[in-house]
Nucleic acid binder design. Structure first.
Lengths: 126, 126
DNA sequence: CTGTATCCGATATGATACTG
DNA sequence: CAGTATCATATCGGATACAG
């Protein structure tokens, strides 16, 4: 996703590079609603993700300090993930983004209902 | 970057898929500060981007209705790009993200200055 | 249960050269 | 000026199989 990112030094890109990529925002979303989730629970809630990719996303989120990993050396091992304080701060911003996305979707549906099929740029414009 | 994105139906991913990818947030940022920029001006302000990638980013932003392309068939042709209304709405959200990014950077610098080198997760945590 | 190790194919990036 | 065309490389995502 995100390793060699941020060629511009733009601070936004720095954060976006950490949270982007398929599944990542959804993982953050799940964690913010559930406080803590185990690896298997995340897997179950994201049906189509592979273990490899889920692991990869969690490791990267951990590396950037957005997610905390709690490992209990029981048998079998128990690992749960939760948002760090920063992860929670980020969620507030993402919620803003989410609201914009939902509003646009609604506007688009209204418009398409009235005018029939259009392409994205036409719909978005007005 | 962004073509087959949004496997989760998460609305955030839908927008993030449109604006992410190297350079894209920076392009939006430049356009929001300058009202309108020509292709060559964007090129000059983003020194390391290739014409191909810049074109690709602009086409995608245009397709999602965030950027408007104004083509004047003069000789030589004059093309300028500006944010649509949606592009401007988005900028507000990005600014929030930007503020968080800047705050974190500052916190991190302070912490590193006090404690010496750490990795990202250590720095972010606290 | 919680991951790693591999392999593969698709996609994106970047450099270079060329055009209306 | 504002791109397009082409090619080479790198990276990523996903499937599968295996391990502590």
């Amino acid at each position: 996703m995100t390793a060699k990112h941020n060629p511009t030094q733009c601070p936004m890109e720095s954060i976006l590079g950490q949270i982007m990529g398929p599944w990542t925002p959804y993982i953050l979303w799940l964690l913010s609603n559930e406080k803590a989730l185990r690896f298997g629970e995340l897997s179950a809630r994201i049906p189509d993700i592979s273990a490899k990719v889920l692991t990869d996303r969690l490791r990267k989120l951990e590396a950037s300090g957005l997610v905390h990993r709690d490992y209990q050396p029981t048998v079998p091992p128990t690992v749960s993930y939760s948002l760090t304080e920063r992860g929670q701060e980020l969620h507030c911003v993402l919620q803003g983004l989410n609201e914009v996305a939902l509003r646009w979707d609604e506007e688009d549906r209204d418009k398409v209902a009235k005018n029939g099929m259009m392409d994205a740029a036409e719909v978005a414009a007005d």
